[in-house]
C-alpha cells in the first residue's frame, strides 16, 4: 500500500468516525432514557401513564398521567405556530421582496436580536408585562395561561421562520419574477402567485423548524403558562407542558423513585412527538417536491 492510499484510508475512517458519532449519541440517549424509565413500568405498569391526571407528589395517590401534559404541549405549540406563521411569512416576504436595501439593513438586525433574546428574559417579560395585558384584554382572572405562553413562543419562532423563509424566497430565481412581470403582473401578484409558491417548500421547512423550537422550549412556558396540569385545549386555561414538567420536577425528585422514572417517560413521549412531527414535515416536503403546485 502506498503512502497516499494509506492516508486516504485514514482520512476515510476519520470521517466515518465523525459521522457515526451522531448516530452513536442518539442511540445512547435513547438507551439512557429507556434504562431510566424501566423502574416505572416495573412498579406501576405502563398503563399508569394513561391516567388523566398528573399528581406526582401526593399523600393520597400519586398519579402519573401524561395526557394533561401532552395536551398542554400540543395546545401551546399549535397556538404559537398559528400566531407565528402570518408574522413570520409576511415578515420574510417584506424583507426579501419589498423592503428597500436601507429598510432591510434596519430590520434584519432586529430580527437577529429577537432570535438572540434568552428565553428566561422573554419569560420574565411575559410574566411581568404580557400576562397582565392578556389578563386585561380578555377579562381573565389570571394572565398566566396557554395563550400568554403561545404568544411568547411565537416571538421565539418568528425569527426562525423569517430568516429561513427569507433564504428560501431569495433563492427563487430572478427569471421567474421576470417572466411574471413580463406577463403584466405587478409586484404583489408576482410575490403571491410565483415567488411564494416557488419557495413554499423552504417556507414549510421554516415553519417546522419554528415549531421544533417551540415544542422544545422550556423556560418561557415554565414561567408564564401557570403550570397547572389541567387537561384542556382552552387557550385561557393554565396548562403544564411536558418540557416544563421535566425542568421543574427533575431537580427535587428523589433519585431512582417512581416519580423520577416517570419524568423519563415524559421525555420519551416528547422525543416521539418531535420525531413524528419531523416525519410529517419530511413527508409534506417530499410530496410538495413531487407534485407541482399552482
Amino acid at each position: 500500500m502506498t503512502k497516499k492510499q494509506l492516508s486516504d484510508l485514514v482520512v476515510k475512517y476519520l470521517f466515518q468516525i465523525a459521522a457515526s458519532m451522531t448516530v452513536l449519541i442518539v442511540a445512547l440517549i435513547f438507551l439512557f432514557l429507556f434504562k431510566e424509565s424501566i423502574p416505572f413500568v416495573r412498579d406501576l405498569g405502563l398503563g399508569a401513564l394513561f391516567d388523566v391526571r398528573w399528581e406526582p407528589v401526593s399523600y393520597v395517590k400519586e398519579r402519573f398521567g401524561i395526557y394533561p401534559l401532552f395536551l398542554g404541549s400540543l395546545s401551546v405549540t399549535f397556538l404559537a405556530t398559528i400566531i407565528a406563521i402570518p408574522f413570520g411569512v409576511i415578515g420574510a416576504v417584506y424583507i426579501s421582496e419589498i423592503a428597500t436595501p436601507l429598510e432591510r439593513e434596519i430590520f434584519k438586525p432586529f430580527v437577529e436580536l429577537l432570535a438572540g433574546i434568552p428565553s428566561v428574559v422573554l419569560g420574565f417579560f411575559g410574566m411581568v408585562v404580557l400576562a397582565p395585558i392578556v389578563k386585561a384584554v380578555f377579562h381573565l382572572s389570571s394572565g398566566l395561561n396557554a395563550l400568554t405562553g403561545a404568544l411568547l413562543l411565537a416571538l421565539m419562532a418568528i425569527p426562525t421562520i423569517i430568516s429561513i423563509s427569507e433564504d428560501a424566497l431569495k433563492s427563487v430565481p430572478m427569471s421567474y419574477k421576470q417572466a411574471s412581470l413580463a406577463l403584466g403582473a405587478n409586484k404583489l401578484e408576482t410575490i403571491w402567485r410565483v415567488t411564494v409558491p416557488a419557495a413554499l417548500s423552504g417556507i414549510i421547512a421554516a415553519i417546522m423548524l419554528g415549531m421544533g423550537r417551540v415544542i422544545g422550549e422550556t423556560m418561557t412556558v415554565l414561567m408564564v403558562t401557570g403550570n397547572a396540569p389541567i387537561p384542556t385545549l382552552n387557550p385561557f386555561e393554565s396548562v403544564r407542558t411536558m418540557t416544563a414538567t421535566i425542568a421543574a420536577e427533575m431537580g427535587e425528585v428523589a433519585f431512582g423513585s417512581v416519580h423520577y422514572s416517570s419524568l423519563f417517560w415524559v421525555g420519551i413521549i416528547l422525543l416521539i412527538a418531535t420525531f413524528i412531527l419531523n416525519m410529517i414535515a419530511q413527508r409534506v416536503l417530499k410530496n410538495y417536491k413531487r407534485r407541482p403546485h399552482g
Partner: peptide, 23 residues
C-alpha cells in the same frame, strides 16, 4: 400592465414557473 400584455416576452433561458404545464 396593459403594455406588457400587449408586448409579450420570451427570455434567453427558458423560465417556466415550477407549476404544471397547464398552470
Amino acid at each position: 400592465v396593459t403594455l406588457r400584455k400587449n408586448v409579450g416576452m420570451v427570455f434567453q433561458k427558458s423560465n417556466p414557473f415550477p407549476k404544471s404545464v397547464y398552470d
